[in-house]
């Protein structure tokens, strides 16, 4: 028995969660909070600068694969897989 409505709601929750992370690492850490974060250093990197030029991109990659993995599980749970 497939439950398309429940699947869609679960998908929206997952997408929303991922979008929050997407926003925080780029717009949050990379732009809005860049000045306070620049007071923290990892090696030669100021942390805000690192998020803007390196960290956000790594998180984006991880986020897409995380989404693909979780939504694949939901596909099977709700019986809507291909």
């Amino acid at each position: 028995m497939t439950n398309k409505k429940g699947y869609w709601r679960a998908n929206l929750r997952l997408v929303f969660g991922c979008m929050v992370v997407w926003f925080i690492v780029s717009f949050g850490f990379g732009i809005i909070l860049v000045e306070p974060l620049n007071n923290i250093r990892i090696g030669g990197y100021k942390l805000g600068f690192w998020f803007a030029q390196q960290g956000s991109i790594y998180v984006f990659v991880a986020l897409i694969f995380f989404y693909a993995w979780r939504i694949g599980k939901l596909d099977r749970e709700y019986g809507v897989a291909e």
Partner: peptide
């Protein structure tokens, strides 16, 4: 850097 990579997150999910 962020603009031309972050778009793929939107593409993959939306």
């Amino acid at each position: 850097l962020m603009g031309w990579t972050g778009g793929y997150v939107l593409l993959a999910m939306l």
